[in-house]
Design a binder for these strands. Structure first.
Lengths: 172, 172
DNA sequence: TAGAACGTTTAATACGTATTAAACGATATG
DNA sequence: CATATCGTTTAATACGTATTAAACGTTCTA
């Protein structure tokens, strides 16, 4: 086994992760490579190491910049752009997930308000509307307590908080 | 505005939700229609109301059965299969999301163990490996406290628990 | 027992989106 | 000033997956 192979496995996995976050495989792979690189990489480096086209890397790395997952940096003596990873990937995933959930919530809000305008709902529909509204309420109150960012520190806090919760709401 | 239009909007939204859960649009749409229907529907009903092919409905409804999101029921006097929704969709989403996260976690576990076998990691790589392991630890300890199922009751509990948490870990 | 009414399967197709190749503009360089 | 080196854009293509149409087996029914 060599370092190269490990990188390939890691990069594959981060690629899948990217796809499951609604981005795409390439975005994840670029991030994965930069994450494990000990120095900033140029667009050309990424092209050759990931065997992707220049256009694709250019496109996807801008997506990563938009998520503040990578940063373009200046290397003196070179005309190239270099990219450095933001290693706080938990936070990046968190922000991404948060946005997606907010999108879903707002969709449901719109569906709910449509329903509420309607005065010819049958019994079941009224029941289901009520159920959705309950869920919506809970989520709304939860999302009011959700932080903008999350760090590994706050994760650790969360972990310890969970044991507090466990004692408050013990399993039957 | 009429009921039909509302259903279309609702069904569209649940379709998107299905897609964002890594299922597909049709699965979501079938669930959405059943969710708002006051009586069980047959495969033919779904075909005509959703304007999908029989094959597609047949395929996707079995996917929903696998997730226990719908139940096949017997209606006396008819040879057709009828389907009834499991309205506890929060739980369905939860189970689905849980599975996806566990998949991601296990991928990371495999990547981590690959790294640990390697003895030629550079400084950055060692650092990053450590970071990933930290995150993994936190997630592992969290996932040990995550319930198999989640109900609207437990959601409400969670909501009240959050205010407890808030007092334990007040915002700066 | 022939045919209709089912749900399933499968092979073909449609569709969205990721990816590429190549042209391009801008900037540096010799 | 001609050429090389960049990153970006765009139009064409590749690719995976959702969807369909149609054939099929089975069960019911007239």
């Amino acid at each position: 086994m060599n370092t190269e192979n490990i990188n390939i496995n890691f990069i594959r996995i981060v690629g899948e992760l990217g796809a499951s976050l609604g981005l795409n495989r390439s975005v994840g792979q670029i991030y994965g490579l930069l994450y494990m690189s000990d120095k900033p990489l140029s667009l050309d480096d990424l092209v050759s190491k990931l065997k992707m086209s220049k256009g694709s890397v250019s496109l996807n790395i801008r997506e990563l910049e938009r998520w503040e997952a990578v940063k373009k940096i200046w290397v003196s003596g070179s005309r190239k752009d270099f990219y450095e990873v933001n290693p706080d990937f938990i936070n990046i995933i968190y922000k991404r997930t948060k946005l997606r959930m907010e999108k879903i919530l707002s969709n449901f809000n719109s569906a709910i308000s449509d329903f509420e305008k309607n005065n010819s709902l049958n019994k079941i529909q009224k029941e289901r509307l009520l159920q959705i509204k309950n869920i919506q309420n809970v989520f709304q109150s939860i999302s009011g307590n959700v932080p903008e960012d999350i760090s590994i520190n706050s994760m650790t806090k969360l972990s310890s908080a969970l044991s507090v919760l466990k004692s408050i709401f013990p399993k039957k």
